[in-house]
Amino acid sequence: MQKIIILWSFLIIPLLLLGIFTYYPAFSLITISFTNWNGISSIKTGVGLDNYIRVFSDPKYFEIFSHNLIYFFVGFVQIGLSLYFAVILNSKLRGRNIFRAILFSPYIINSVAIAFMFTFLLNNEVGALNVVLKEIGLESLSMNWLSDPKIINYTLAFMSTWKYMGFMMVIIIGALQSIPNDIYEAASIDGANGFQAFRFITLPSLRRILELCFFLNLNGALSAFEFPFVIFPSGSPLGMSDTFVTNTLLTSFRYSDFGLASAMGVLLMIITIILVLAQRWLFFGRDEK
């Protein structure tokens, strides 16, 4: 009995905080999604499924969601680079701690500072990147990095990759250091080369960590917000860089349509759950008992 009381004493506060700051807001979000509410009035008019129908019937939201998909696919590049640098910097490389610190440092830099830094770097006329390309004779490669609808979302996605690659690399390094060296030594004695050791020892040992990386990539892609919002706080021209989250924010606070914004939030939550479960089954779940 005493043990039960102690356990509940430790659990009650976290459970209470979880209920107040997670489950109650989620329940309120679902409730508001079935209403027409401006966020100020005390009157909330019930509209049934109208808000959800508006989302599915307007092709604008599908186009916005396609912007999130760009972040998702660019995220695979981030995972690949993180794995590549993690494997290299886990070896007996001279100065590896310095390189680790350099690659991890973007993660601790404020996202607003990073956004402004890249805004100056990628400026169409005086940005350092286009100036360098012009000086070395590659002027044909210079682009309107932050104003061309065809590439702006790729630019923002690679900004996110630059910031978060070091964080993911550190996670993978931690997993690599947990693999016993005896296994590699035994494989070397049996004649395995470096690629074979990576394929048959390293990758299987990183299975769970890679699952986490894929989850972080998916979650980050669906919730992409910081860089599009900081660079275009009032919304990008023609919505060319809007993501589902930034559009939800504009719908609620600019257009005062909290019912529609809540419906978008609920749909994003459902989509996230479905895609996480699908990704888990596709990559890791088919052979689990």
Rank of each mutant, 00 (worst) to 15 (best):
P204D: 13
T45V: 13
G259A: 06
A224W: 01
F76K: 05
R208T: 09
L176M: 03
A278K: 10
K92E: 09
N217W: 04
R254Q: 12
Y255S: 14
Y24D: 02
K289E: 14
S262A: 15
I152D: 07
K3G: 09
V112H: 03
S256C: 03
I152P: 09
A263P: 13
P237M: 12
W281Q: 15
K60P: 03
G75V: 00
I189H: 10
G75M: 00
L133K: 05
I171S: 10
L18T: 14
A101S: 14
F258Q: 14
S33K: 12
L49T: 11
I64A: 01
H67I: 03
L49I: 15
S91G: 12
I20M: 10
A115G: 05
G285N: 11
L267D: 00
L29G: 08
S236I: 03
F258H: 12
S241A: 15
P149T: 10
L133T: 03
R199Y: 05
Q177A: 07
R100E: 06
P25M: 12
L238H: 07
L7Q: 15
L218H: 04
P204G: 10
C213V: 12
R254Y: 05
F104V: 00
E226C: 01
R280S: 14
L17D: 10
L282G: 04
F72K: 09
Q2V: 06
S205L: 05
N97R: 13
F215G: 01
I70H: 05
